[in-house]
Each structure stands twice: as structure tokens, then as C-alpha cells.
């Protein structure tokens, strides 16, 4: 079951490479959030209410519901075009995604003396997700699409923390939570502040600006 979820997560990256619609990327973020929740629950060996609530909050509430809803709302509110408007074609994006997969799994395979705590499949997909997020940020001019690239990258980092095993130093677990908080802050507070600072005519222009 765990492997199936990880593979579906990997397929969501391929889906992100061939879509031209912002709405589809939002759906991908929702799917990834739910899968991350599933992976975390499946990997839990000892049930603990507090950690269950924290994980549910981080993955289901923030990653799968709140942030995608907010991005969708921002797109609607600012009457933004629904296309991704990437600088590269879908073919190029897909070819690069394949290369990213090859690189990530080659890295996983080349690693000497694999520690028992690391899952190669999980690591490969996590690493590919981080690189895919960076690629979306670089290859897109639209601020909102770059934000989605950042969120995909954050999902990759979350997965990387899962692949690193359960005996992580406490500070790393704290860092994972803080990283999610930062992505929430960026996604929600800052854009909200920009929106509230300018009138309706200005706001879409700012949100469409190249970065």
C-alpha cells in the first residue's frame, strides 16, 4: 500500500508536467497533501493522538485543504487567467521530468552503504519532487505558479523527512513543521496583505508580476 501511494505521488509530478491549467496544479497539491497524510499514517508504528493531530493538521488541513483553497480563491478574486503560462513547452517539461526521475533514482542507486532507515523508492520520488518544484519556479513567470512550485518543493521536503526514518533529531521534526508554517505564511498572509494594500484594480497586476 505504501509503495502504491508513493508511486501515485510520483505520477502526480508527471501530471504536473503535462497540464496547462492552474486548477489542475491545485488538484495535484490536494492529492499530494492527502497522499502525504496516508504515507505518514502508514509509517507510524506507535499510535499517538498528539502526533496524529499534528500530522493531520500539517498534511490534510494545511497542505490538502487550506492552501489550495486559498490559491483558488486568489485566482478567482483577481480574475487571473487560468493558464499556467510556462516559458517551456509541455514536451520539454515532460522530458525534463523524466530526466529528473532518472537522476533521482540514479542518486538513490549510487548511494553507497544504504542505511537501513532510508527507503530508496521514497527517497527517489522525494528528491524528484524537490527538483520538480525548483523547475516550476524557474520555468514560470507567473507569481502564483511559482508559489505552487514552491509548495510542490515543500511537499518533496516533507517526503524526504519521511524517507529519512522515524528516529530524526527532534529539531528536524520541528523544522518540518516550521517549514510548513512558513509556506502557509507566504501563501496566505503576504498575498492577503498585498491584496488589502491595493485596490482591486492594482492587485491583479501585482499578483501577475514576474519575479
Amino acid at each position: 500500500m505504501l509503495e502504491i501511494l508513493i508511486v501515485i505521488f510520483g505520477l502526480s509530478l508527471v501530471w504536473a508536467s503535462v497540464t496547462n491549467m492552474l486548477g489542475t496544479i491545485i488538484k495535484i497539491l490536494v492529492v499530494q497533501g492527502i497522499i502525504l497524510f496516508g504515507i505518514t499514517v502508514l509509517k507510524t508504528t506507535q499510535f499517538n493522538w498528539l502526533s496524529f493531530v499534528t500530522i493531520a493538521l500539517e498534511t490534510l488541513i494545511f497542505k490538502a485543504v487550506l492552501i489550495p483553497w486559498f490559491i483558488n480563491d486568489t485566482i478567482k478574486h483577481n480574475h487571473m487567467r487560468r493558464e499556467v503560462e510556462a516559458s517551456v513547452s509541455n514536451f520539454f517539461s515532460l522530458a525534463l521530468m523524466s530526466l529528473i526521475f532518472i537522476l533521482s533514482f540514479a542518486l538513490a542507486a549510487a548511494a553507497p552503504a544504504w542505511s537501513v532507515k532510508v527507503f530508496p523508492l521514497e527517497f527517489g520520488i522525494a528528491f524528484a519532487t524537490i527538483l520538480k518544484g525548483v523547475f516550476i519556479i524557474i520555468a514560470n513567470k507567473k507569481l502564483i505558479t511559482q508559489l505552487m512550485g514552491y509548495l510542490i518543493m515543500e511537499n518533496g521536503i516533507f517526503m524526504l523527512s519521511l524517507s529519512a526514518g522515524s528516529d530524526l533529531p527532534y529539531i528536524v521534526s520541528l523544522g518540518v513543521s516550521l517549514d510548513i508554517m512558513l509556506s502557509v505564511l507566504i501563501a496566505v498572509l503576504f498575498i492577503k496583505r498585498i491584496r488589502s494594500t491595493f485596490d482591486d484594480d492594482d492587485a491583479p497586476e501585482i499578483l501577475r508580476e514576474d519575479i
Binding site: I130, M153, E154, S161, A164, L182, I186, D202
Partner: peptide
Amino acid sequence: KRSLEAAWKYLFICSVGIALAFAGILLLVI
């Protein structure tokens, strides 16, 4: 408008950088 854009750019790019640094820290754990 300009200062908000500049702050946004700063926050976004540095956050991407810091997220990559965090990935580096996870790799150090690995």
C-alpha cells in the same frame, strides 16, 4: 507597492533557498 513587491521577492526567493538548505540538513541526517 514597490516595497511590498520587493519584500515579497525577498521572502519568496529566500524561502526557496532556506527550503533547499533544509533539504541539505535532512541529507546530513541521512
